[in-house]
Design a protein around this nucleic acid. Sequence first.
DNA 1: ACGCGTAGGTACCGACCGGTAACATCCTCG
DNA 2: CGAGGATGTTACCGGTCGGTACCTACGCGT
Lengths: 215, 215
Amino acid sequence: MNTLQINRLRMDGSPELAELPPRERIMVAARDLFYRYGLHPVGVDAIAETALTNKMTLYRHFKSKDDLIVAYIKRLADEGDEVWERIISENSGNPEKCLDAWVDYVEDVLTNKLERGCAIANAAVELDAEHPARAVIEAYKSRKRANLVKLFKSARYREPELLADEVFLLFEGARINIQCGKKGPASRLVRMLRNLLAAAPRLSASKVRRSPTIA
Amino acid sequence: MNTLQINRLRMDGSPELAELPPRERIMVAARDLFYRYGLHPVGVDAIAETALTNKMTLYRHFKSKDDLIVAYIKRLADEGDEVWERIISENSGNPEKCLDAWVDYVEDVLTNKLERGCAIANAAVELDAEHPARAVIEAYKSRKRANLVKLFKSARYREPELLADEVFLLFEGARINIQCGKKGPASRLVRMLRNLLAAAPRLSASKVRRSPTIA
DNA sequence: ACGCGTAGGTACCGACCGGTAACATCCTCG
DNA sequence: CGAGGATGTTACCGGTCGGTACCTACGCGT
């Protein structure tokens, strides 16, 4: 369709893109197009054009479209990890602040007008069971869940594993459900999350010498 | 014996598939292929062939692939509604039994070896915002959530809307997350669900004359 | 000045896809 | 029996897709 035109409009306003090295431009373009339109509908030509280059250059940096998809997923996973690390470091590992910051982040994600679900989960829906990107996806998702467990432990929740499962599934559910209507349960997740985290039972802090940190 | 298994049996030996009318054969084939491989990767030729017919007959019953996709989604939605109605009717609208039966159904779904998430949610991931099937999808998902609210109300939960949102998102999250690894939080959803439903506060039953029913 | 690696541009290939035309066949019902 | 409608079969069209060959042009270090 007019995929290219729509996207070129949006990319025009970014003067920095033209100054990035070709491989990076391709990554940026792929990230944008794959997320907005899905993996299958977006062709390599469209990515190359959006990246202000051509298909040949794309194939000099990625040996196939599948290879580019793997790189795309890895990039997403890296960015997700960075977001988490930033949340931890910006709050000096203080569990309460981290919790608040993470919920704020969730709120940001869910209220984003362009939200179309978790790009990684969406990719999992589109990719068949044998695709090399699946390993990256599974590792990432289990890492995310482990991060929550660690945070809940440091916040001294009584059942950090259970709480992590719950919070994780709620978030995942919200991100998939938002694609089935913006006014559904997803729009109420943040409130649920704050209530849940406030109400979940914790260990008493009486025996703690110093305030625990997650980092 | 849930619907998935029933349907898989129908596909496996496919003894009766050959005796179905062409349009129905196409619907069965589309249902199987679309779910297993996604909307985009499955071509109309493949569907026709699986349906023991050809592309021409397919196009005599559906004016386009998109039209077939809409019919596919509608069929899924109808089947989902039927599952719910069966749960209600088979338990005579008794809220407690309905709750148990629904959780059992969830367990069936999540432990099915072929589980690849909610077919309707997966379709939402693959379809762009203007696709005619989206209306069907949104209506279905909001109906599912409404069903839960009604059930929780009749079971006299204190906050049926909140609980419905929570349970709904947990289930949705589990079905998407199972595609990112079978050993993740999704595998523990059923236990979470039973605990949640057992622990959630209810209204006292003192003033109730007769046992309430959902139907 | 030179050479070399990287990038841009164009043209092309074979495969596949959604969709259609035209025709043969079969079943049913009058 | 005969006619009409639904189905099967083949071939085809135009477009797109992933991927490649080939050549040019620029930049950079020596």
